[in-house]
Design a protein around this nucleic acid. Structure first.
Length: 865
DNA sequence: GCAAGGTC
């Protein structure tokens, strides 16, 4: 398209739900003649006809849902907000992925456009600057059921008005799910957390999808547990024919009455010979499969989540078609020949495909068209080297399944021989495959062959013995992942994309465990939770809870009910359920009490509580924590290290006794923390500070947990705070190097954010920070009391004061771990330089962008003191 | 730390 035409033609902006669909739409409408430029998402441009006149098109997309909801900041505090109040809380709509700048992108692209066509049902008209009431800039909605040329063109010829109701329905679901889920989750978590020692969880969540999902697993567990096996008996006569010993099946299968079975056994034994009453042969057909939809988990032994992940990767690399689809029916226009041709080069099935192409392949069995995407098919040839291990297995499966769908049916002959012994009827069957068909390429669906000697009608055969088999009825097994998926689909729990997420969730939360064969076995916690709901309000864990929400929302989507009316109605129902649940929680607690050991009975007294001044118990089980039995409060501790009392020192802010946390090993470190401050950082803005350090892979996250140890505390006078133990800026991050107070004799400085460590002179009797600052770089001056035998000072002197960065003697004695010292010294010099130029009040802020946070915190301390 | 729903 020329730039001159672009300027003159009316512009049409088209927005699809994801980049791949924008590409397909543009390719179809421009016949591949479009230009593409990058942006937040790609924009494809071309000239074409729009509603009877020539127009310039811009086709772009969003990436999934543009908006999601959450509570305002004030409602994020678990300690101050009563979960009940969440039902009446306002909610905020935010861009789901602010970094992607989708709103900005759309409003930019919408500029200068006279028309907009939405290929999605989301509520984003406002963010484009378009207005539904503006008659000059019209907004349309394109409805399409598959991403095919035919459907796309049809949608363009039948544009409709955008449907606000559908967007409102999405909003309604978001608000309901948020309020219900968060209110119940916070209440349960706060109530049970820290109450029992062997209760291993960080959060006890509730959700209208995840909880019924768990409900299915527990229901099966209960079925198994309450199963009473029953004895049964079956007659098993044996005959010998053409040298084969054959066991015959009884027409009555089994009896639950031993006496009756014994009577029949006597009859049959006395019958002595089996008379062949009938020999029948029947041609049977096992039909080729329909197209492959969302990858079945059990087929390959990956979890559904992993399978989807691999499939997603294969899709983005162009090896298979879009893997998230419910449809098993191919569009009529689907080009099977091309898809097959791409597979002729395959060393394993290439020959088979070649024969299919030359002998003529079959159309797949007609499946169901869910109106989303075509079934999953291979797009281009791949080798194991190109895609690698597990993805390769999945790719093979997709290919074999696809080739299977266009292969002939499998044919086999089923023989049934009916025999009579002493008036009782028995039979035996055999199976013989005559045409493998698709099972040749899909060996996992092969028909079992069972050879049978030939029998003649009327023939008599001697019965060699008659067994009276005694068996027990057996309980069903635990739910498998694929059974669970079917149950969820059947009850409308989750969507094809979210089902694996819910299953994953109940595993991560420790409600179920995945055992061999991908069986889901509920844990004590999972079972206790469901039993609890069952005795307080069974609705809470039944699938109907989801159907109820979905059905109410459908009313909004169809315009049959008002959005806010429906939301209010549903929220009101849950508000009542919630308050009843809160009122009755002791019933659930009774079950917890029976299952878990109360915390008060366990743990060793470690440090004193600042509130009641009694000893708190240290629970080492995950998650490690301190429990005050008097106040019934729990204080979490960092994981993966040891906790000891720190010299009975106390925190000046809250009077709690300090503990010292240590990670063992040569690169380990120690720092003191106040149990109270660690859990509730006392200074404004401190959360933000940690938020900043909580970037993925930041060592601070795993080493310090999410709380505030003394090494991060800006208290101006406490001797343990970063203000008094901090020495200088960390050369590797924005943190501060803090003196490790218990590192004698291997003295060191540890960064309070990252894993950087600086070794100080070993063996010194004492090393301490002083209140003096280096005039050169503002680092804290440290004082060292050297060992008499190893002192580097002249005349056997042992006391020395200096700056780690500027004092020549100290600089020669310190050692930086991990990096080459030259590089580090350069970095240190840089740090020194910037710290002298900006002149910060607290060491370590030199390179920090969020400096003001500490200042705010520091002033807060001053006013506090 | 909390839901479910999209898709990267």
């Amino acid at each position: 398209s020329s730039s001159s035409s672009m300027a003159n033609l009316p512009r049409v902006l088209m927005v699809a739900e994801k980049p791949s669909i924008a590409l397909s739409i543009a390719s179809v409408l421009s016949h591949g003649q479009m230009s593409t430029r990058r942006g937040s998402t790609e924009v494809h441009e071309f000239d074409g006809m729009f509603r009877g006149f020539k127009a310039h098109y811009r086709v772009t997309s969003v990436i999934g849902h543009v908006f999601s909801v959450d509570f305002p900041e004030k409602y994020q505090n678990w300690a101050t907000i009563d979960p009940q109040d969440l039902f009446d809380a306002p909610i905020l709509k935010k861009e789901s992925n602010p970094k992607a700048h989708i709103c900005r992108h759309l409003s930019n692209e919408a500029r200068g456009c006279s028309y907009m066509v939405l290929w999605l049902d989301c509520d984003l008209i406002e963010s484009t600057g378009f207005d539904m009431k503006d008659s000059k800039r019209k907004v349309y909605r394109a409805r399409f059921s598959s991403v095919t040329e035919k459907d796309i063109s049809k949608a363009m010829d039948n544009l409709v008005e955008p449907n606000r109701d559908e967007a409102l329905a999405v909003d309604a679901r978001q608000e309901i799910d948020l309020k219900v889920g968060v209110a119940f989750s916070r209440f349960q978590t706060s109530y049970f957390q820290g109450k029992y020692q062997n209760l291993d969880c960080r959060v006890i969540s509730y959700g209208p999808c995840q909880t019924p999902t768990l409900g299915f697993c527990v229901q099966r567990y209960m079925h198994i547990n309450t199963f009473k096996p029953e004895k049964f008996w079956a007659l098993r006569p044996y005959i010998i024919k053409d040298g084969y010993e054959l066991q015959l099946e009884w027409e009555r299968r089994r009896l639950f009455d031993l006496e009756a079975a014994t009577v029949f056994q006597k009859l049959v034994v006395e019958g002595r010979t089996a008379k062949v009453m009938d020999v029948s042969e029947k041609q049977e057909v096992k039909g080729r499969p329909a197209g492959l939809n969302t990858v079945a988990s059990s087929a390959l032994g990956f979890g559904p989540q992993t399978a989807m992940h691999l499939a997603e990767r294969l899709y983005t690399q162009g090896f298979i078609s879009y893997p998230r689809t419910e449809s098993t029916a191919y569009p009529s226009s689907f080009d099977f020949t091309d898809t097959l041709r791409a597979q002729v080069s395959n060393p394993i099935w290439g020959g088979y495909v070649q024969r299919l192409l030359s002998d003529g392949f079959h159309k797949p069995k007609s499946g169901t068209d869910a109106g989303d995407h075509p079934p999953i098919t291979p797009m281009r040839a791949a080798t194991e080297v190109m895609v690698g291990g597990d993805a390769w297995r999945l790719y093979q499966y997709v290919c074999q399944h696809f080739i299977g769908t266009v292969s002939p049916n499998c044919k086999y002959i089923r023989t049934k021989v009916e025999l009579s012994i002493g008036g009782e009827t028995f039979h035996c069957t055999g199976q013989r495959v005559t045409e493998k068909g698709f099972t040749a390429i899909m060996p996992w669906s092969a028909v079992d062959e069972k050879k049978l000697p030939s029998f003649l009608k009327g023939e008599r055969i001697e019965v060699i013995r008659v067994e009276l088999y005694e068996g027990n009825t057996a309980p069903p097994d635990y739910l498998t992942e694929s059974e669970l998926i079917s149950l969820m689909e059947k009850h409308g729990i989750g969507t094809d994309a979210s089902i694996p997420v819910h299953i994953n969730n109940i595993g991560e939360r420790n409600y179920v465990q995945v055992q061999a064969g991908r069986k889901l076995v509920p844990t004590a916690l999972g079972i206790t939770l469901i039993r609890g709901y069952q005795c307080i309000d069974p609705d809470l864990c039944l699938p109907d809870i989801r159907s109820f929400i979905e059905q109410q929302i459908t009313l909004v989507a169809k315009g049959q009910a008002d959005h806010s009316h429906v939301v209010q109605h549903v929220i009101q129902q849950f508000r009542r359920k919630f308050s009843y649940f809160v009122q009755q929680i002791e019933h659930m607690d009774a079950l917890f009490e029976a299952q878990f050991s109360p915390l008060a009975d366990s743990g060793r007294a470690l440090s004193k509580c600042g509130k009641c001044l009694r000893y708190m118990k240290h629970i080492t089980a995950v998650p490690p924590r301190l429990f005050c039995g008097t106040c019934e409060e729990v204080y979490y501790l960092p994981q993966k290290g040891t906790i000891k009392l720190y010299k009975e020192l106390t925190c000046p802010l809250d009077n709690f006794e300090l503990v010292i946390y240590s990670v063992p090993g040569p690169e380990g470190k120690s720092f003191p923390l106040c149990p109270y401050c660690y859990n509730s950082p006392p200074f404004e803005g401190i959360d933000t500070l940690f938020g900043a350090s909580k970037t993925p892979n930041a060592p601070a996250k795993t080493k310090t947990g999410s709380g505030m140890p003394c090494s991060l505390c800006p208290h101006p006078t406490c001797q343990h705070s970063v203000r008094n133990q901090g020495v200088c800026a960390c050369p590797e991050c924005e943190g501060t190097l803090v003196l490790d107070p218990v590192s004698f004799p291997k003295w060191k400085l540890n960064c309070n954010l990252c894993s950087c460590i600086v070794l100080l002179p070993e063996g010194a009797h004492r090393i301490a920070t002083t209140s003096n600052r280096c005039p050169e770089c503002d680092s804290a001056i440290i004082e060292i009391d050297f060992n008499k035998k190893t002192t580097p000072l002249e005349n056997g002197a042992t006391l020395h004061q200096g700056c780690v960065l500027c004092d020549e003697l100290l600089l020669s004695l310190v050692e930086f771990l991990k990096r080459k010292s030259k590089e580090l010294i350069k970095k240190m010099e840089k740090a020194v330089h910037s710290s002298t130029t900006s002149g910060p009040a607290v060491p370590g802020e030199a390179t920090k962008t969020g400096t003001s946070i500490i200042d705010t915190a520091a002033s807060a301390v001053q006013s506090f003191a």
